Simulated scan of single mutants.
Amino acid sequence: MHKTALACLGAFAFSGAAMADAQIILGDAQRVARLFAFPNNCHVICYRDWSLEQTVEHYLTQSVRRDGYATAKVQVSRANEQVRASISEVPADYALPLQRLLDNGELAYQGAMQLNKDGKWSYDWYLFLPLGMALHNRRSIELLHFPPDYSLTQAQDYLRSNTTDRWAELLTYNGVDASQTPAYQTIIDIAPIAAPASAGDALTGTYGYFKDYQLRMVKDMTLQSAEQALPMVAFGAPVRSWVQQQYGPQVEVLGLVSISPQAGMQVPVLGANHPSAIWYAANKDSHGGDQDAADAAGLKMMGQDLTAACWQAGMGRNPAANPNMTLQACSNKWQVTQKKQTCELFFRSVRKYTPEQAAAKCNSGPVNRTLRDLRKPIEAAPKAL
C-alpha cells in the first residue's frame, strides 16, 4: 500500500519559486462546511471528532505535502465570520489553484442541490470534492468515475482507496518513487459524489448535473502552466464515453487522443481500464469457472494497465515528450519484450503468489500460450467499469 497522506515530495518543489506565507479567505463557515464535506464522518458518534478548522487543516496539509512543501505549516482560523487559512513556506501564488478548486466546487454543489430537488440524490451519497490533491506541482491528471465513500468517511483521504492504491503500485513498477505517486494522481471525478462502490450504475444519470463543474475542472487542472498541458488518463468505460461526448474523439483502452479544454491548448488523453476492472476480468466466475481463461484475461489486462501507467509516468516526467512515441515504447516494453515480468507482476499482485510461485506459473504451458501475444484483445469484458 502506498503512503499518501503525508508523503514528502520535496523533489517536486520548483527551485526558483519565491516562498511566502499564503493568506487565503475560504469564505463563511457555511460555504467552507459544504465544500469540505464537513462533518466528514458524524452521525451520532463521530469517527473523528474534528472541528471545521481541523478538517480544513487536514486537507490543506495533504495538499502542501503532495506538492512537495515538506516544511509548510497550515493554520485555519475564523475572524469576522470568515474562515481563513494561512500557509507558510509555499509559493506566493499558492492560493490561486486552491481558490479555483473551491470556486469550481460551488458549481458541483449547485449540481448536487438540483439533483436532490429532482429526487435523484441518494441518502448514502456525499458531495466530495478532490480535496488534498497536489495543487501546484501536479505531474498528470487522472479522470475517474466517482470516489468510494470510505475515502471520505473512514480515511478522509481522497487518495486512500483500493483503486488509487493499485494504480500507485503500477506507477512504481514504471519508475515513480512511492513517495512521489500522489503528484501523478491528481484526480477529477466526473461524479463528485462519495458513494458505495456498487453505486456506479445509479450515478450514470447524474453526469449532466455536473457538466459546468466537470469542464471547468478539466480546463483548470490540465493546465499546469501556460506553456504546457499535463497528460491525462481516462479510466473506465463511463469516463471514456464521457470524454467522447464532451470533446468528440472516441477513446478506447490504450487509445490516444487529443482534446482542447480551452482554445489553443491540446491535452493528450490516454484511455485505460478502470484500475479495479482486473479483479472482475481475472475472476474465474466471469469465465464459467475456467481458471485458465481467467488467468489469460487477467494477464492481458495487466499488460494494458502496465502500459497505461508507463505512459502516464513517462509523460508526467516530461510533458513535452511525444505522446505517441511514449505509448509505443511502453506497449513494446510490457506487452512484448518484458511480458514475462508482466506475467509475474500479475500473479504476485493480483493472485498474491510468492515471487517463486509466480515465476514457476509464468513458465507453465497455459500461461505461455497467453504470453505469446498479450496485444490480442480481451475476449470477454465481464463488467464495464
Rank of each mutant, 00 (worst) to 15 (best):
S140V: 01
K376R: 15
G111A: 14
S88P: 02
Q262C: 13
A37V: 01
H145A: 12
W334V: 09
L9W: 01
K284G: 06
V56I: 03
L371N: 05
T186C: 08
N137C: 15
L129N: 00
I87H: 11
V233I: 12
E89G: 08
T307S: 06
A183I: 00
I87S: 11
Q341G: 07
G119C: 02
I378T: 10
A194Y: 03
L374M: 11
M232F: 07
Q246A: 08
A178Y: 06
T222N: 07
K3F: 15
S88Q: 07
K3L: 15
K340C: 04
A37Q: 02
L98T: 07
E227H: 07
M315L: 15
Y184I: 00
A360K: 09
R160S: 06
A197W: 12
K300R: 15
K339C: 04
L270N: 05
Q110G: 02
A229D: 06
N41E: 10
S151V: 11
T153K: 11
Y158K: 06
H58K: 09
I193D: 03
H136V: 14
V269L: 13
D290F: 14
H287N: 09
D28W: 06
A202D: 11
R240D: 05
A272T: 10
L96K: 07
Y173V: 08
R48V: 06
N116Q: 11
D157C: 09
D149E: 13
N162I: 06
V269T: 12
V44F: 12
T342L: 01
P97G: 07
T222F: 03
V176A: 04
D157V: 04
G289M: 14
R78G: 10
G314L: 10
C343P: 00
G288D: 06
L129A: 01
E53Y: 09
G27K: 00
N273F: 08
Q312V: 11
L129R: 02
T181G: 00
Y207G: 03
A202S: 13
N40W: 06
I87C: 12
A37K: 02
L374N: 01
V267P: 00
K120G: 05
P355V: 07
L115F: 13
C310W: 00
L223P: 01
I25H: 15
D290A: 15
A360F: 07
G200N: 02
Q244Y: 07
I278N: 10
A309K: 00
V243T: 05
L159H: 02
G271F: 02
T370R: 06
C343Q: 01
R48K: 14
S225C: 12
Y209I: 07
L306Y: 03
N332K: 13
P261T: 09
E81R: 10
L270G: 00
A20Q: 12
Q114K: 15
S77L: 05
F146D: 08
R31L: 15
Q154S: 10
L52S: 08
A199I: 04
Y158G: 01
D28S: 04
D290V: 09
R351S: 11
A11C: 11
A29E: 06
I187W: 01
I259D: 02
I278K: 09
M113Q: 09
